[in-house]
Design a protein around this nucleic acid. Sequence first.
DNA 1: TGGGTTACAATACATCTGTATTGAAAAGGC
DNA 2: GCCTTTTCAATACAGATGTATTGTAACCCA
Lengths: 196, 196
Amino acid sequence: MPRRTDHQERRALIADALMRVAAERGLEEVSLRHIAAEAGVSLGMVQHYFRTKAEMMLFAMTAVRERGEARVGAAVAALGDNPAPRDLLRTIITAVLPLSDQARADGKVALAFLAYSAVRPEAAAALHLDTAQLLSHVASMIPTERPDQDAAALLAIMEGLGVYLLGGHYSPDQALAALDAYLDKIYSGTIPKVAP
Amino acid sequence: MPRRTDHQERRALIADALMRVAAERGLEEVSLRHIAAEAGVSLGMVQHYFRTKAEMMLFAMTAVRERGEARVGAAVAALGDNPAPRDLLRTIITAVLPLSDQARADGKVALAFLAYSAVRPEAAAALHLDTAQLLSHVASMIPTERPDQDAAALLAIMEGLGVYLLGGHYSPDQALAALDAYLDKIYSGTIPKVAP
DNA sequence: TGGGTTACAATACATCTGTATTGAAAAGGC
DNA sequence: GCCTTTTCAATACAGATGTATTGTAACCCA
């Protein structure tokens, strides 16, 4: 059984090209031939690694998600051990927000896939960070009387800031100021949930 | 100079068909022929009222926005005169959120156009102005120390909740609870809702 | 040293795409 | 009544699209 190529590596190469095209020109410009050209390979090769376009799209979708998770993981790791919950939360969120060029490109792709999966329920399960998991994780770090609601609002702020940043409606400074203002409400002044 | 048809009316008819297709199958399935079929007219007629596809898309984009504004306007009008700022704000936001079937359909289209305009800067300008206006309006209704930041966060919450609702990550109850929790923080002064 | 399998490349194919062209019916203004 | 203009419908067209088919070189295992 000869297997000379690393399938995952080739798929990643193609998915990278897809993300580049999607970030620059949108998902509508994503065709097998465009992706092949962008990746510098032939149409036949793309077909060899993805039997159908939908399969390629699905793979790229999870690749975007994994790239986001990797960015968050790296930012969190840079915090060292036992960071304060507020710092941890802010680090996670700023890692998700499209503040760097790379994150901006990824964000555009993620937004495109968000719209894509909004009309393709079979593709919706895979996208983005697993919100439910993240929600309970964030809630556990929020010392208010209603951590679930406040966590839900915080994630919504994160998503909304991301969208507004991508659209150019908010500047990075504006977005971070809004985020910090909310974190202030969560973490300052009020008596923590546990002992006084 | 014979002019037997109301151009705006015909355009609206076609834009309605476009929004139906976009809501059900996404912007990728929007082609001149699909829209013509959905509207029950011929391709030639669509071409007669929109010289190019981009022109049709642009018209539909502003039609979605106007529909959303109309929904907000109606909800606000139903509040009567001199509503409390918090009620007014909550009414505006719940009118924007995709909570009804109609608002869900519109929301999907709006999300699709958001991704669409993220890679077409020439189409993004209208939304930009809209947000800036809404932001200062909302800020004027927020009695906190930093109304600008808190208003920015509130709009982000609105947008994020909308996205999560469309994606099915939040239930309507969850979204409204998160919204109300934030409004509590803004409006309840320092006294929490639950007794100390 | 084969035989079989993999990894592509090339190309064919039917369908769909946006746009342009042509033509004809209808309806004002003169 | 005629003539110009609008309102469409039909069709043509070149290019793109996803997928299927075929061919061919390379490689591993026997």
